[in-house]
Amino acid sequence: MATLNDLIGILKIRVIKGTNLIAKDINHSDPYVIISMGSQKLKTRHVKNDCNPVWNDELTLAIADFDAPINLTVYDTDSFTPDDQLGEAQIDIKPYIECMRAQLSDISTDTIVDKILPNRKNCLTDVSHIIWKDGKLVQDMIVRLKNVKTGEVELQIEWVDIPSYKNGS
């Protein structure tokens, strides 16, 4: 388990919404998302009776290793049985980290710094842009859930430096 001295920075993950999640309870689900990395597990609130939920929940992961996988799993809340899994995906932050290491500055807001295409190694459904916004890099992405017929989750990630750390140097 990482200690405070091992921390590189903080990754803010805004879980925006889900689209076309599978219905586990007759015609609906009561979905929530768990973001996990190592021993860290963060959870959004659950949304009742909605296969297209809007969460807009912000979760923060303490990052000690850029290579540690970040997993996203969607569940359906159940009252009397274990919660059903509605799909999973991995969040790939490596392209974002590469842009961050470039130590960009003095760029016009809303400038696209990089675009990541969907491929077999990531769970992206469409092109994901890394954008310079108000002096920070943000990446918007939509990930396709694996091991289910349908389902996507829209996210936004943003890095927060820890003052003693200098962007990977």
Rank of each mutant, 00 (worst) to 15 (best):
A2Y: 04
A2W: 07
L4Q: 13
D6L: 06
L7Q: 15
I8H: 07
G9K: 10
I10R: 11
R14S: 12
K17E: 13
T19P: 12
L21P: 11
I22M: 10
N27S: 14
H28S: 14
S29A: 12
P31F: 07
V33E: 04
I35H: 01
S36R: 00
M37I: 03
G38C: 01
S39M: 00
Q40S: 05
Q40P: 01
K41E: 12
L42S: 12
K43L: 08
K43G: 02
K43P: 09
R45H: 11
H46F: 15
K48L: 14
K48W: 06
C51I: 15
W55I: 03
N56S: 06
D57Q: 05
A62F: 11
D65M: 06
D65A: 05
L72F: 02
L72Y: 11
L72T: 02
T73P: 07
V74D: 08
T77D: 11
D78N: 14
D78Y: 04
P82H: 06
D83E: 02
D83R: 03
D84K: 10
Q85T: 14
Q85V: 05
L86W: 02
L86I: 12
L86H: 10
G87N: 11
A89F: 03
I93G: 06
K94R: 14
P95A: 03
I97P: 03
C99F: 08
M100K: 08
R101P: 01
Q103G: 00
Q103K: 15
L104Q: 07
I107M: 12
S108R: 09
T109I: 00
D110K: 10
D110H: 08
V113F: 02
K115W: 12
K121W: 14
K121C: 06
D126K: 15
H129W: 04
H129P: 06
W132P: 11
K136I: 01
V138I: 15
M141E: 04
R144C: 07
R144K: 11
L145D: 10
V148N: 03
T150R: 13
G151P: 00
E152A: 05
E154F: 05
W159V: 07
V160K: 06
V160F: 01
D161Q: 02
D161W: 02
P163R: 08
Y165P: 00
Y165D: 09
Y165V: 15
K166V: 13
G168V: 07
